[in-house]
């Protein structure tokens, strides 16, 4: 069975790689199979890892005790019925005459996401980031030698100045002229360096994934040589 699995994996890999030559029925077959299998995978994972232990076992502990041992002897936690009802209402999206009911569940999801994002992004991605930027000393004498001290000071200036100029670039309510325009230009340069670094790392990431696949194909070829 393991050999069969290896061969199926290898053949699917080659079918998908065939897209590099041109689009063809083998690639389309693999792509459609993947779509079906992955949708079912996520559904099954959601059912067995969340709905069964964290909903059904909490609403019906005695009935679920044979499957979820931790439910044995525990009390019914009826407030989870709220989540269960909202979850079932979400599924009405598949029934056009009553699909509007699913908006109630969507509203819960949106409300949760908006409520948590507002506070967490404000705290972690705004206040803390501004604090980290402004808490850097603009002048420091703590380098190991004169060049290190010079570069430390320059680095602090790049961070504070770079963030400020970058934010100025994104402020479109004022025309980018004069000193404002010059600072905006510096902001673009800092952003370009960041994008260049991202490009370099993106190349690294993609090549790593290819290395993994070639290692797999090497293993497959070695298995029948």
């Amino acid at each position: 069975m393991e050999t069969l699995q290896l061969w199926i994996g290898a053949l699917l890999t080659l079918m998908i790689f065939s897209f590099l030559y041109r689009d063809n029925p083998f690639y389309k077959f693999a792509e459609h199979l993947f779509v079906g299998v992955s949708a079912a995978y996520w559904m099954v994972q959601g059912f067995w890892n969340e709905i069964v232990p964290n909903l059904l076992a909490k609403l019906f502990p005695n009935q679920m005790a044979n499957i979820v041992e931790a439910a044995r002897g525990s009390q019914v936690q009826s407030h989870y019925a709220i989540a269960g009802i909202l979850g079932l209402i979400l599924l009405t999206r598949l029934i056009p005459p009553i699909a509007w009911l699913s908006r109630w569940s969507m509203a819960f999801i949106i409300g949760y996401t908006a409520g948590t994002n507002l506070t967490r992004y404000l705290s972690s991605d705004f206040v803390t980031q501004v604090q980290s930027t402004l808490s850097r000393p603009l002048i420091t004498g703590s380098g190991a030698n004169w060049f290190d001290t010079l570069m430390l000071n320059f680095s602090n200036l790049v961070i504070v100045g770079g963030v400020l100029c970058g934010l100025i670039y994104f402020f479109f309510s004022k025309e980018h002229t004069g000193a404002f325009g010059k600072m905006s230009r510096v902001g673009i340069w800092v952003l370009m360096v960041a994008f260049g670094a991202s490009f370099g790392y993106t190349v690294m990431a993609r090549i790593s994934l290819l290395i993994g696949r070639i290692e797999f194909l090497r293993g497959w070829i070695l298995s029948f040589l």
């Binding site: 994972q45 959601g46 059912f47 969340e50 989870y80 979850g87 999206r93 819960f108 999801i109």
Partner: peptide
């Protein structure tokens, strides 16, 4: 509750 509804969203997707 959000986690449970998210699991139902997977069922909806399928």
């Amino acid at each position: 509750y959000f986690n449970i509804i998210a699991a139902f969203a997977f069922v909806l997707g399928g």
